[in-house]
């Protein structure tokens, strides 16, 4: 059997140490890294491409679900947390198991058995589906997470100017920079506050706070002029949506 490479993510050293200790009975599993926060976890997963992730939920900066949203590798995830309330969501993102702290060695081994089974079958849920699940239920978000290589950007939604669809990606324009993120525009739109963000065009979402004025430039077609001078095309239905909001 192949070696399984695992990463332990928890902000508490003691919580990591017990996973480490239980793993010492399993020579087939090698600890590739230990991370004490979400940023490190995203970087480690991107660089080390592990097969297995032990993931705490409540951590500084990025929580466990946000980490999952930002990584692309196909891997097995075991959530390890003291909170019961994330269990449903954990299985929605196809976590292999959900360990409630404190947990016994037997319970831990059971979780590992499931991981080995899953890795043996090598069947992974498509990333996009996992991503959608990771974001679901989070009503409207206050920040959007973007990863560039192993670097993570946290963009508060009020700092977003507009968002444009680009093939499989969305380009998020904020503070003079564009951030690419693999996501559907409609999925992103459903996460944003509908009182602030309007789909003004098939391929554009606008933060209405940035709008300076609207100009008619052809029949049924308008141009949104932003406060920084940027011009964005507004479709007829986009205009209706804007009118409704303003």
């Amino acid at each position: 059997m192949d070696i399984i490479r695992a990463i332990i993510v928890d902000d508490e050293e003691l919580a990591r140490s017990i996973v480490r200790e239980y793993l010492s009975d399993h020579p087939e599993i090698q600890i590739a890294a230990e991370c004490s926060n979400g940023y490190e976890a995203v970087k480690a997963v991107t660089d080390l491409k592990p097969n297995l992730l032990f993931l705490d939920v409540q951590m500084p900066k990025l929580n466990g679900f946000e980490v999952l949203e930002l990584i692309e590798a196909d891997l097995a995830v075991i959530f390890v947390t003291a909170y019961e309330q994330y269990a449903v969501k954990a299985f929605e993102v196809h976590a292999v198991d959900y360990l409630l702290k404190p947990f016994s060695r037997e319970r831990f081994d059971e979780a590992l058995a499931r991981v080995q089974e899953k890795l043996a079958r090598n069947e992974f849920v498509p990333r996009l589906e996992v991503l959608q699940a990771a974001r679901s239920g989070t009503e409207t978000v206050e920040r959007v997470l973007v990863r560039d290589g192993s670097k993570v950007f946290v963009i508060p939604t009020e700092k977003i100017d507009y968002i444009e669809a680009q093939d499989d990606y969305v380009s998020i324009r904020s503070e003079g920079k564009s951030h690419l993120k693999k996501q559907r525009l409609s999925d992103l739109q459903s996460m944003l506050d509908p009182k602030k963000f309007v789909r003004i065009h098939r391929s554009t979402i606008l933060n209405v706070d940035r709008l300076a004025r609207l100009e008619l430039y052809a029949k049924d077609s308008r141009m949104a002029i932003l406060k920084d001078g940027t011009q964005l095309q507004v479709s007829r239905s986009g205009y209706e949506a804007l009118k409704e909001l303003l």
Binding site: L14, A15, K101, P102
Partner: peptide, 16 residues
């Protein structure tokens, strides 16, 4: 309760 569970987890980790 989460304070308790986390503390118990620390105790469990220190045990060995």
């Amino acid at each position: 309760p989460h304070f308790l569970f986390n503390s118990l987890n620390s105790i469990s980790a220190l045990a060995t």
